[in-house]
Computed example of a mutant assay.
Amino acid sequence: MLKRILAINPGSTSTKIAIFEDEKLINKTNIKHSTEEINTFKTVFDQFNFRKNALLEELDKIGVDIHSLDAVVGRGGMLKPIEGGTYNVNQTMIDYVKAAPRGEHASNLGCVIAKTIADEVGIPSFIVDPVAVDEMNDIARFTGMPEIRRQSLFHALNQKAVALKAAKDLGKDYHDLNLIVAHLGGGVSVGAHEKGRVIDVNNALDGDGPMSPERSGAVPLGPLYKMAFSGEYTLEEIKKKNYGKGGLVAYLGTNDGFEIEKRINSGDQEAKFILEVMCYQIAKEIGSLAVVLKGNVDAIVITGGLAYDKMIINFIDERTSFISRMLVYPGEDEMESLALGALRVLNGDETPKEY
């Protein structure tokens, strides 16, 4: 019998919902919230009833009775560091996101809304591979400064989802493989997946790893701290150079891959060179993780929005093909990834973890 699953993904000014029957998408809706409405709430947690009611109204509009559901799955928020997998939503998790010690983020509401709806009809509620997934080996956490440790903050939901797809396509179990997975979107995260664990990955938020369409990636520290203390920039301006106005935006004035490709096809050599710079850095990051995996790499897996760009794929493949074969899964379907995580539990293919 088909399992009906409601997936919920709260964003800053929207709440995405999707209905799946097993792996098949039945309905997907993006409920928009105006900035004015969101700004009336003091904290993200205060938005709970507002977002839940909007979601229930939308379900009523599209004719979905919550009593017809078999499970509800929400996007995981800024939780404490945890292993990857599908988790039962419990009160400890709710209390943590309410206190928000790791920061306010709309995704914190995913588990809360999921549990409230699920409890009303007596079905399970889950989260899947939140951004807080941390499976790094201790050796990967250290830097040259004892005061600073590397943290695991990356596109865990999509990386884990495509790693499972790659394992299926290779006819093997994810936990028997060594994969290097590169998520290429507004930010770039490249992870070493060793036998089902992401043992090393660049922090795509904090200036670690390759540049991306809107992030600087790692830069030499000497010039950076001189810039920071020059008096010419505020802290917020320095942050923006790292996150938001770095990378392709800083050099080319846009983070739009299609626009950049159009410029390249029109003969813009600067655009072509800067794009290749980004791909060079991504390839170099992949190479460094091949060392982490001691050269034992079953496949290089590329995903994210930029994976649609054949020029980018070719640039990276030219430099990494000696390491292993490349598998490409363009785009990022967070709703499907959430639903599939819940489905694996419902089908008995995975045991849910407790937070």
Rank of each mutant, 00 (worst) to 15 (best):
G74A: 00
T303R: 08
F322I: 12
T40S: 15
A166Q: 09
V301R: 03
S230Q: 05
R141P: 01
T43C: 09
A182K: 03
E334R: 00
V219H: 01
R215M: 03
A299D: 06
E83Y: 12
M227H: 08
V297T: 05
G77A: 08
N88H: 15
K42L: 12
F258M: 11
F41W: 09
G257P: 03
I199C: 05
R197Q: 09
R149S: 01
K245T: 13
I180V: 13
H175M: 08
C111F: 00
P352I: 09
V97R: 06
S230Y: 05
K226M: 14
E37K: 13
Q159S: 11
A250H: 07
G209S: 10
I127L: 05
A54M: 11
T43W: 08
K16D: 04
E83N: 13
L327A: 09
Y355T: 02
E270R: 14
N108Q: 12
D60R: 13
V112H: 04
G74R: 00
L235G: 04
I199R: 00
D298L: 02
D134G: 06
I123M: 07
L153H: 07
F258H: 09
E104P: 05
V190M: 05
F48H: 12
Y233I: 11
K28R: 15
G267Y: 10
Y243Q: 09
A99R: 15
M227G: 04
D176M: 07
